[in-house]
């Protein structure tokens, strides 16, 4: 079997409403690693994911997965947006949402197969939400909603997983479930990219960090990235103390 392909981000620049949001980003994302994106508010963390997946136009640059542009291979991608982007009053049950993860694989005009239903059910079991299958999504807690979206991502059977702030407003149990599954995905040779809303304990869970503030400040293992110099460049001079800074 050929080795799993990398994602290569090459000279990526993105504008958001005529303002430069990301400038000349060069990165490689390898399978099997849990990659965390960090940086201050407005650093372009969410924009990085959206630009990679072709959800917003690039000014310059290219994002490839293997030989081809990543945006042409979205059937291999599972993306979980920020919880605030979702209308939680939408008339759908937990099951409806998880089955959305099977839409692309099922194809136009086809009905969901028994195999697809089984995959969705397994995904719900994995995140511990099987008992909530028939609940309206609006009746769940924030952590439960996030686990349902994680189940949807799992049901997509993707090779690349992108999560935008999955830990915002979730309970401890959900956080544990999410990290456990992130680890399992990495161990299974998937590319797992996670945007985080703040620094803190979270940073200890990632194999590779990407420190971002409109441009790439540093990337690599924790000790390599978390220098006082890098933190000052990312967060400015206001940040006095980080317990995790080497």
């Amino acid at each position: 079997m050929a080795p799993a392909p990398y994602i290569t981000i090459d000279h990526l620049s993105v504008n958001y409403r005529d303002v430069q949001a990301l400038r000349n980003i060069n990165l490689t994302l390898r399978p099997g690693k849990l990659v965390g994106v960090f940086g201050p508010n407005g650093a372009g963390k969410s924009t990085l994911i959206k630009a990679m997946l072709g959800l917003m136009p690039l000014v310059t640059g290219r994002v490839t997965y293997g030989e081809d542009t990543l945006a042409h291979q979205l059937d291999r991608v599972a993306y979980v947006p920020q919880r605030s982007q979702i209308d939680w009053t939408f008339p759908a049950t937990v099951w409806d949402v998880v089955m959305m993860g099977r839409v692309q694989k099922t194809g136009w005009f086809n009905r969901f197969s028994t195999a697809s239903r089984q995959i969705a059910q397994d995904a719900l079991n994995r995140v511990g939400m099987a008992d909530f299958r028939d609940r309206p999504i609006g009746a769940l807690s924030g952590g439960q909603q996030q686990r349902v979206f994680l189940a949807r991502a799992l049901a997509q059977e993707a090779d690349i997983f992108c999560f935008d702030e999955p830990f915002v407003g979730v309970d401890q149990k959900t956080e544990d479930v999410i990290y456990k599954i992130f680890r399992e995905l990495a161990a299974a040779g998937k590319i797992v990219l996670v945007v985080n809303h703040d620094l803190g304990e979270a940073i200890m869970n990632f194999d590779q960090l990407i420190l971002l503030n409109k441009e790439l400040i540093a990337t690599g293992p924790r000790d390599w990235v978390l220098t006082r110099d890098n933190m000052t460049r990312a967060y400015g001079g206001h940040v006095g103390f980080f317990s995790h800074v080497a």
């Binding site: 959206k50 997946l53 959800l55 979205l74 059937d75 991608v77 599972a78 993306y79 979980v80 947006p81 982007q85 979702i86 209308d87 939408f90 759908a92 409806d96 949402v97 089955m99 959305m100 993860g101 839409v103 692309q104 099922t106 136009w108 005009f109 969901f112 949807r152 997509q156 992108c162």
Partner: peptide, 22 residues
């Protein structure tokens, strides 16, 4: 009827639907 599952995904989570290749 023919586009029900796609339109459901798209109306609920347009970004997620686009990111899955729809």
């Amino acid at each position: 009827v023919l586009l029900y599952k796609e339109l459901l995904f798209y109306s609920f989570d347009p970004l997620g639907a686009k990111a899955s290749g729809l």
